[in-house]
Design a protein around this nucleic acid. Structure first.
Lengths: 219, 219
DNA sequence: ATATTTTTTTAGATTTGTCTAAAAATTAAT
DNA sequence: ATTAATTTTTAGACAAATCTAAAAAAATAT
């Protein structure tokens, strides 16, 4: 079955909101889609008719299992394109989202299957998020962004989400490389910056932007 | 300036029809777009307001110079994606049109510029059609499909638009390779088949589909 | 040159996705 | 437990792109 771009955007955003809370409400979806609550209600009714949504008036809503499958497929396309844009076309990590947002709506099965093969079945997109496989199965990713690591954890750097000379210069300065062990001391909520300890060097602070670009493993 | 998918499809198809005749008429565009003449008239008015079209009621229409630039950009995107689909993703020559038709509407300048670089600035798409560069300049292509060669011409095979084992088997059978000289004897309009003479071998007939897949140079 | 046919355009309706303003239901507050 | 505030939905309108049916213009044929 085929869905309009508008429908796909609703489905995808409901999916993402569900990662944070079981039930989704009209206002937050409207905010996410940069539209008005009334428009959301209209679309919810259409999605419900197509059996993509479990929805009761005034009670909130969630994707049906069919809706979930559709959503995961969209997420798959989005993340594969992001991976392509960064690794093949040389885009910066942080510039690919908007473009992938358009490419994801080209919904030819064979295209995505062949793209996946061409990219060697990547497990995560350039932001470290897992890419579901053709059956909708999410790979279990041990890698996560340093911005998401809890305090006091020791981690090992696995990859960097941005290949720009600017960030590599910075990482050199901090003595951070692939394989480097880092301890997360403390996170400052004001600006999301983090105090870390790299090997034997004195503790130092990295900005949230840097933290987001460093991917790490931990046990 | 940005255009809707519908607008882009109209512009592109007007462009293609103009390659055959200076002025385009409502019915043929409607046929091309698989829509109704009344819908075409409606859209023509909109395109005229946006200065994309020279249009006089009942007199036919053509793209303005602005419209032409937009069209060439769409053609560029379409052909670059076709090239990508065949050479990188391994699609068959004849399966890529529909997919490129969708991808062409993702109109991010940087995306197309980087895709072009990634593909090494190809001069022609998998059908042998020239790919305009970033400034809208069409490369002069001496290569053309054998289906388009006039009768009695001698040509030299330059490439094959389809890498499938099936066509390669056929070409072997006909003793056709890259560099082979072929004389086009006669074209049969009933089915588009062509009688050709390959080197010293007896004249034989190839189907239109095969002819379309053989690209040749001639003086 | 007039009638016939074909092509093109207008008029008015429809579908999709959106909006504003107002009503209804739910939640929070006193 | 009412009242107040918030959230959600309805009602009605609008823009884009399409359609059908009918009118208008142009091309063709006698």
């Amino acid at each position: 079955m085929n869905f309009s771009i508008a429908e796909e955007n609703y489905i995808k955003n409901i999916y993402h909101l569900q990662q944070q809370s079981e039930l989704v409400n009209t206002n937050s979806l409207a905010y996410e889609l940069q539209t008005k609550p009334a428009s959301v209600t209209d679309m919810l009714k259409k999605l419900q008719v197509k059996n993509l949504l479990d929805y009761e008036k005034y009670k909130g809503f969630r994707l049906s299992s069919k809706g979930n499958k559709v959503a995961i497929n969209i997420v798959r396309r989005h993340r594969l394109w992001e991976f392509f844009l960064v690794t093949k076309l040389g885009f910066e990590w942080d510039k690919v989202h908007a473009i992938a947002e358009e490419l994801e709506h080209v919904s030819n099965q064979e295209l995505i299957q062949k793209l996946d093969r061409f990219l060697n079945h990547p497990q995560t997109d350039p932001h470290g998020d897992p890419i579901p496989d053709g059956n909708g199965k999410m790979p279990v990713i041990h890698q996560l962004s340093m911005a998401d690591v809890v305090e006091k954890k020791k981690v090992i750097v696995s990859s960097v989400g941005n290949q720009s000379p600017a960030i590599l210069e910075l990482l050199n300065h901090y003595h951070i490389n692939i394989g480097t062990e880092i301890k997360i001391n403390q996170r400052f909520s004001f600006d999301g910056s983090i105090e870390i300890k790299v090997g034997k060097y004195a503790a130092c602070i990295i900005s949230e932007l840097v933290a987001k670009n460093i991917f790490v493993y931990h046990d």
